[in-house]
Deep mutational scan, measured.
Amino acid sequence: DESNKPILLPNESQSFERSVQLLDQIPSYDTHKIAVLYVGEGQSNSELAILSNEHGSYRYTEFLTGLGRLIELKDCQPDKVYLGGLDVCGEDGQFTYCWHDDIMQAVFHIATLMPTKDVDKHRCDKKRHLGNDFVSIVYNDSGEDFKLGTIKGQFNFVHVIVTPLDYECNLVSLQCRKDMEGLVDTSVAKIVSDRNLPFVARQMALHANMASQVHHSRSNPTDIYPSKWIARLRHIKRLRQRICEEAAYSNPSLPLVHPPSHSKAPAQTPAEPTPGYEVGQRKRLISSVEDFTE
Rank of each mutant, 00 (worst) to 15 (best):
D1P: 15
D1M: 14
E2S: 05
S3V: 11
K5Q: 14
I7H: 06
L8T: 12
S15G: 12
F16A: 08
F16C: 11
E17V: 10
E17R: 12
V20E: 08
L22V: 05
Q25H: 07
I26Q: 07
I26H: 03
I26K: 07
I26F: 07
S28M: 06
S28G: 13
Y29W: 10
Y29L: 13
D30E: 13
K33E: 15
I34R: 01
A35E: 03
A35T: 07
V36N: 00
V36I: 04
V39D: 00
V39L: 02
Q43E: 02
N45A: 11
E47Y: 04
E47H: 03
L51F: 07
N53P: 02
E54L: 03
G56W: 02
S57D: 01
S57F: 01
Y58H: 06
Y60Q: 00
Y60M: 00
Y60D: 00
F63I: 00
T65Y: 06
L67E: 00
K74T: 12
P78M: 12
K80L: 04
L86R: 15
G90Q: 11
D92Q: 13
Y97W: 04
Y97K: 04
W99G: 03
W99D: 05
D101Y: 00
I103A: 05
Q105S: 11
F108N: 01
F108L: 01
A111F: 06
L113S: 05
M114A: 05
D120Y: 09
H122Q: 12
D125E: 08
K126V: 06
R128F: 09
H129S: 06
N132R: 14
D133G: 13
N140E: 00
E144H: 04
D145H: 06
L148F: 15
T150N: 03
I151Y: 04
F157R: 06
V160L: 04
V160C: 02
I161Q: 05
V162D: 00
P164Q: 00
E168I: 01
C169F: 09
L171Q: 05
L174E: 01
L174V: 14
L174F: 07
K178W: 11
M180F: 13
E181Y: 07
E181P: 09
L183P: 02
V184R: 02
V184A: 03
V184Y: 05
S187K: 07
V188L: 11
A189K: 10
S193N: 03
D194E: 03
D194G: 00
F199D: 02
A201S: 04
A201T: 10
A201L: 01
A208V: 03
N209F: 02
N209C: 08
M210V: 06
V214L: 05
H215I: 13
H215S: 05
R218I: 10
P221K: 05
T222I: 06
T222Q: 10
D223F: 07
P226L: 06
P226A: 06
P226T: 08
K228D: 14
I230D: 13
A231T: 13
A231P: 12
L233R: 09
L233N: 12
H235I: 15
K237H: 13
K237S: 07
R238N: 11
L239M: 15
R240C: 10
Q241T: 10
R242P: 12
I243N: 07
E245D: 12
A248V: 09
N251M: 13
P255A: 08
S263Q: 10
S263E: 13
A265D: 11
P266Y: 08
T269S: 10
T269W: 12
G276S: 06
Y277P: 14
Y277N: 14
E278D: 10
G280H: 07
Q281V: 10
Q281C: 09
R282M: 12
L285R: 10
T293Y: 04
T293C: 10
E294K: 07
E294F: 05
